[in-house]
Amino acid sequence: VDYIVEYDYDAQHDDELTIRKGDIIKNVKKLEEEGWLEGELNGKRGMFPDNFVKEIK
């Protein structure tokens, strides 16, 4: 499942992704941690907030 970024987010920890509006995040999975998703961007896998992105259908 792929998501498109709607709002910029700067990573706060090493396991998070810095994302920018218009980025496409690939292979996204829901995490047990409420409010977070995990996906791949530019060869890096990491977490990001689910309210900054929208699923591409």
Rank of each mutant, 00 (worst) to 15 (best):
R20H: 15
G35Y: 05
E38K: 07
V1K: 10
I4L: 10
G39L: 01
E38H: 05
N42R: 12
D15W: 14
V5Y: 02
V28T: 06
E34R: 15
K21E: 09
Q12M: 13
F48S: 01
I24A: 03
G39S: 01
Q12P: 03
E38S: 09
I24Q: 04
D23P: 00
F48E: 01
D8M: 03
Y9F: 09
I25W: 00
G46Q: 01
K44A: 10
N27G: 13
K21F: 07
W36N: 02
D14F: 14
E33M: 13
L31D: 07
K44S: 05
L31F: 10
I4F: 14
R45T: 15
E34Q: 12
D2M: 09
D50A: 13
H13N: 09
F52R: 08
G46K: 03
E32T: 15
K21L: 10
N27S: 13
E40L: 09
E16Q: 07
F52M: 11
R45V: 15
G22W: 01
I4G: 08
K54A: 09
I25S: 00
I19P: 01
D23Y: 01
L41M: 12
G43P: 01
E6R: 15
P49E: 04
V28W: 02
I25T: 02
E40Y: 07
I24L: 07
N51A: 06
G43S: 12
E34W: 09
V53R: 03
G39K: 00
D14H: 14
G43Y: 03
L17D: 01
R20T: 09
Y7L: 15
A11Y: 02
I4W: 13
G43L: 06
F48W: 02
N42K: 13
M47V: 10
Q12A: 10
V53Y: 03
E32V: 15
V1H: 15
Q12V: 14
V5P: 02
R45W: 04
E40W: 05
A11Q: 14
G43E: 10
K57N: 11
W36I: 05
D50W: 03
E38N: 11
E38I: 05
D10N: 14
K30Q: 13
L37W: 10
L17W: 00
N51R: 10
N42G: 10
R20Y: 02
R20S: 06
I24R: 14
K57V: 13
K30H: 09
G35D: 05
E55K: 06
V1Q: 15
D14P: 14
D10F: 12
R20F: 02
K54Y: 02
D14S: 15
K29Q: 15
K57G: 09
D2N: 10
I25D: 00
A11N: 04
I56L: 05
V28N: 02
G22L: 02
E33Y: 15
A11L: 07
E16V: 02
V28H: 02
W36A: 03
K44E: 11
I24F: 08
G46R: 02
K21S: 11
E33N: 07
M47Q: 09
L17V: 04
Y9S: 03
N27F: 05
V1D: 07
E33P: 13
W36M: 07
K30T: 05
Y9T: 01
Y7W: 08
I24S: 05
H13G: 09
D14Y: 15
A11H: 04
L41P: 00
G43F: 06
E55V: 15
K44Y: 03
T18Y: 01
E32I: 13
I25A: 02
I56N: 07
A11V: 02
R45D: 02
R45K: 07
K54W: 02
P49G: 05
E34P: 13
D2Q: 14
P49Y: 05
N42H: 13
G46M: 01
W36L: 05
R45N: 09
N51Y: 14
I4A: 10
V5D: 00
E32Y: 12
M47L: 12
N51L: 07
E40G: 04
A11W: 03
F48D: 01
K21A: 12
R45P: 04
M47H: 12
E38A: 07
R20E: 05
E6F: 10
G22R: 07
D14M: 11
Y3R: 08
D50N: 08
I19K: 01
P49D: 05
E33Q: 14
E16F: 05
N51I: 09
K44L: 11
W36V: 05
I56P: 04
K54T: 13
D14N: 15
A11T: 04
E34L: 10
K44T: 10
H13E: 08
G43I: 02
E16G: 05
E32P: 11
D8P: 10
E34T: 12
E55Y: 00
G46V: 03
D15L: 09
I56V: 10
L41S: 07
F52E: 03
N42M: 11
V53P: 04
E55F: 00
F48N: 01
P49K: 06
K30L: 15
E40N: 09
V28K: 01
G46E: 01
D14W: 15
D14Q: 15
Y3N: 03
Q12F: 08
V1Y: 15
W36E: 01
L17M: 09
R20L: 03
E33W: 12
E40S: 07
I56M: 03
Y7P: 00
F52K: 08
E6Q: 11
K21W: 15
E16P: 00
G22F: 01
G35P: 06
F52Q: 05
E38F: 03
L31Y: 11
Y9N: 05
I24H: 05
E38M: 04
Y7H: 15
E55R: 06
I56R: 11
G39I: 00
K54L: 07
E34S: 11
K57L: 08
D23R: 02
L31E: 07
L17Q: 01
G22V: 01
F48R: 00
N27K: 06
I4Y: 12
V28D: 00
D23A: 09
G35N: 08
D23T: 06
G43D: 08
D15K: 13
N51P: 06
N51H: 07
V28M: 02
L17F: 02
K26S: 12
V1G: 15
N42V: 09
I19S: 02
G22S: 05
D10K: 08
D2P: 04
Y3M: 13
F48M: 09
D14V: 11
F48V: 13
P49T: 04
E34G: 12
K57R: 10
N27A: 13
K29F: 11
W36T: 03
I19V: 07
D8A: 07
D8E: 09
D10W: 06
G35K: 05
W36G: 02
L31G: 11
I56Y: 01
R20V: 13
G39N: 01
L37H: 05
K44H: 11
W36K: 07
I25P: 02
Q12K: 11
Y3P: 01
L31Q: 08
E16N: 03
K26G: 12
M47E: 04
L41F: 08
D2F: 05
Y7V: 07
E33H: 15
N51T: 12
Q12I: 11
V28P: 04
L41R: 09
I19Q: 00
N42I: 06
P49R: 11
P49A: 06
K29V: 14
Y7E: 09
G39M: 00
Y9M: 03
P49L: 05
D10S: 09
L17T: 02
T18S: 11
T18V: 08
D2E: 14
K26Y: 06
D50K: 13
F52T: 07
V5G: 12
L17K: 01
I19Y: 00
K44P: 02
V28G: 13
N51G: 10
R20I: 08
M47S: 09
I19W: 00
W36D: 01
I4K: 08
D15I: 11
